[in-house]
Design a protein around this nucleic acid. Structure first.
Length: 649
RNA sequence: GCCGAUGUAGCUCAGUUGGCAGAGCAGCUGAUUCGUAAUUAGCAGGUCGUCAGUUCGACUCUGACCAUCGGCUCCA
């Protein structure tokens, strides 16, 4: 049993929720899937942070004053205006919506009956260059609401009119003008269009007016802009690099996984090499959990509909659950989460305070009917495996548990080569806290959020507050990792749940001999295995560290006579657990080496007449060419050490 | 789900203003037994995403559907 934490603040909440079942309210349970089955990460893949290789540059960039950051915003905002001006010149019938700067560039939303084509994008970019060359002064003009209303009414700028309505009475209304173009805008902007020299239009996309699904679909043009031409080039290079590392591309090239139309969208099929990778990671993950006091459990892929009604999933997530199946008057539903099953495990016996904390772990495969448009390789699928854990503990144990989960994740990520982590405390968005977005009492929320933050404070590590990211029933601690390209990915989530234990009537016998309701923590370390593998593949560009490479060594006999000796070596290595094969093909050595390199095999051993006579192997490391001859014992020790230390390079 | 684009051999991609379907790589067969990123010759390989429609004739035109890609929305 773990030591008692210092969390007293939570005790009242614990008491509040004891026996306070609220049948009228459909309460949810864990929200573990929030981000780790998400689409592209919320990555800040900008010049702020580029890569480990650019650590020095990074420091310099982080030193950049706020002023400079803002002026980059200013530059991009002006670029958006130039984009709109160019579009207006080429297509006068277009109606303008909004055009802000973003973390990585800018966009402008347009309303036009005909769709823009990629060719249009080229024309628009050319027109933008002209506007830059014209070096038009950008001026700000303050006008009254009436003037603005009249102006936008005559120009039939319906979107601007809508924006205008939203401006509170008494606020300044400003118009920015450059040449014949004028836009309702708060600014600030550059002084002249000529200052926006380094920009590029990147893509076309649809976007809802004001981000609302029920609103008009507009056409969005994305672009980016920088002060320095080199920075623009670097950014475009990073985009290219990301494309090259796309896990969907690498997964196909290396034969890890496929999606099959006949099987269904969003349902990954693991090919032998990918399945090997997956099962190795799963085995390691399981071992680590067991070492940390988690007990592995297993549960079925479906359960009776009433189970999902009790847990609340049925009421809250029906549209993302696969539909019910009926047979002999019973209705089953495929699981979108594992929690109710772990609750069953808890309920399988009488629990005492002496048993707490109880930690259950399962590599549980869950199914969620994601909308067709959001599916994205392994990052957003309809069937995936969570390294899902549930901890049942007392209020006093919460802090200790949160700490050990965090530590567990940090150590696990280190093994996979991720050391650049960020901790987020997901709390409510205060501005919307009254809008019925969150359940429960505001005071309770304040209390529990405060407690969460102070627990993280006591961890003595840097963290950030993520407003609006709290689950509707409680706050969470999330851990994001930064990959080799500087992108952030959320993997670990730690959530507190004080609903499910009550709903399922969970209790433990306390020191006082009375029944108490335990707290339940939902957590996942790597998150979704599918998603984590995607992150690994992108981070390493497919060059997986030796210890998780499905094929670690490939032996290349120079001619057929060397095959028996090669097989001998292969067997010896396999016996000590080094995954080795022999390329017995009839191609020449060079072709086999090329094949091995393309397949990103960590080590290639060349065996010819010389090696056979000297009882050695010629070692070739991935991307490092020839390392020279070594005895089998030498290389074996080297490999085993590299595997043991989980070296990544 | 919404907007837009795309879908041709295992893979990467040409192509046809409607008239017998093309390459490279991979595969197979043979020759070659080679020293650190592609030896060579030959042979195969396709309901041109699916289903309808127009047409003497559809891979090409039309429609619906499916899937993928870029976004939007969503992601418990």
């Amino acid at each position: 049993m773990l030591g008692v934490g210092s969390s007293n603040l939570l005790a009242p909440i614990f008491l509040l929720h004891r026996g306070v079942a609220q049948p009228g309210r459909a309460l949810g349970s864990g929200s573990r899937g929030r981000k780790f089955n998400s689409s592209l990460p919320d990555y800040i893949f900008s010049l702020k942070v580029t890569s480990k290789l650019h650590a020095k540059k990074l420091e310099r960039r982080l030193d950049m004053s706020n002023e400079n950051e803002k002026s980059l915003e200013k530059l991009r905002h002006s670029a958006a205006h130039i984009l709109a001006q160019a579009v207006k010149r080429l297509y006068p019938e277009v109606k303008l919506a909004i055009g802000p700067s973003t973390d990585t560039g800018f966009y402008y939303d347009f309303d036009r009956e005909i769709s823009f084509t990629p060719e249009d994008l080229g024309l628009i970019q050319e027109e933008m260059k002209k506007i830059v060359k014209e070096n038009l002064p950008i001026t700000c003009k303050e006008i009254t609401k009436e003037e603005a209303l009249t102006s936008f009414t005559t120009s039939k700028d319906i979107y601007k009119l809508e924006l205008l309505e939203a401006i509170p009475e008494g606020d300044k209304i400003t118009i920015f003008e450059q040449g014949e173009f004028a836009d309702l805008c708060k600014g600030p902007h550059m002084e002249k269009t000529g200052q926006v020299r380094n920009f590029k239009l990147l893509k076309l996309a649809g976007a809802y007016w004001r981000g609302k699904e029920t609103n008009q679909m507009l056409q969005r043009i994305y672009g980016t802009a920088f002060f320095d031409k080199k920075e623009l080039k670097e950014y475009l290079r990073l985009l290219e690099e990301a494309k090259k590392r796309d896990h969907r591309k690498i997964g196909k090239e290396l034969g890890y996984f496929i999606f099959d139309e006949q099987v269904g969208a969003g349902l990954p099929i693991w090919l032998p090499k990918g399945a090997k990778l997956l099962s190795m990671i799963e085995a390691y993950d399981t071992k680590k959990h067991e070492e940390s006091g988690y007990k592995e459990v297993r549960s079925p892929h479906l359960g009776l509909v009433d189970l999902w009604k009790t847990s609340g999933h049925y009421y809250h997530y029906l549209d993302t659950m696969f539909p019910p199946m009926e047979r002999d008057n019973q209705t089953f539903m495929v699981k979108p989460m594992n929690c109710p099953f772990h609750v069953s495990v808890y309920k399988a016996g009488l629990r005492s305070y002496r048993d707490l904390p109880i930690r259950y772990f399962e590599l549980g495969k869950v199914y969620r009917y994601e909308k067709s448009g959001v599916l994205h390789g392994l990052l957003r699928v309809r069937s995936f495996t969570q390294d899902d854990a549930h901890i049942f503990c007392s209020a006093e144990q919460l802090e200790q548990e949160l700490n050990s989960i965090r530590e567990f994740s940090v150590n696990l990520f280190k093994d996979f080569g991720f050391t650049d982590l960020e901790i987020y405390v997901s709390i409510r968005d205060k501005e919307h806290s009254d809008a019925g977005k969150y359940i429960g009492d505001t005071k309770e929320w304040d209390l529990i959020e405060k407690e969460f933050i102070s627990i993280v404070e006591r961890m003595g590590i840097p963290y950030q507050i993520d407003p609006g990211e709290a689950k509707f029933y409680g706050p969470a601690i999330d851990i994001k990792l930064r990959d080799a390209l500087g992108r952030l990915w959320q993997c670990t989530t730690i959530q507190i749940d004080f609903n499910l234990p009550t709903k399922f009537g969970l209790t433990y016998i306390g020191e006082d001999g009375e029944a108490h309701v335990p707290f339940m923590l939902h957590t996942a370390a790597l998150g979704s295995m599918e998603r984590f593998i995607a992150i690994l593949l992108e981070n390493y560009a497919g060059n997986l560290p030796l210890w998780i490479s499905p094929e670690q060594v490939r032996i290349i006999p120079i001619c057929d006579e060397n095959i028996p000796y090669s097989k001998e070596i292969c067997n010896t290595l396999n016996e000590v657990g080094i995954r080795t094969s022999v390329d017995e093909g009839s191609e020449r050595m060079n072709a086999k080496i090329r094949k091995g390199e393309i397949e990103k095999i960590p080590y290639l051993f060349i065996i010819g007449k010389n090696e056979q006579e000297e009882e050695k192997v010629s070692v070739r490391k991935r991307h490092r060419k020839n390392l020279g001859s070594m005895t089998l014992d030498e290389i074996k020790l080297r490999l085993l050490e590299e595997i043991e230390k989980k070296v990544n390079d």
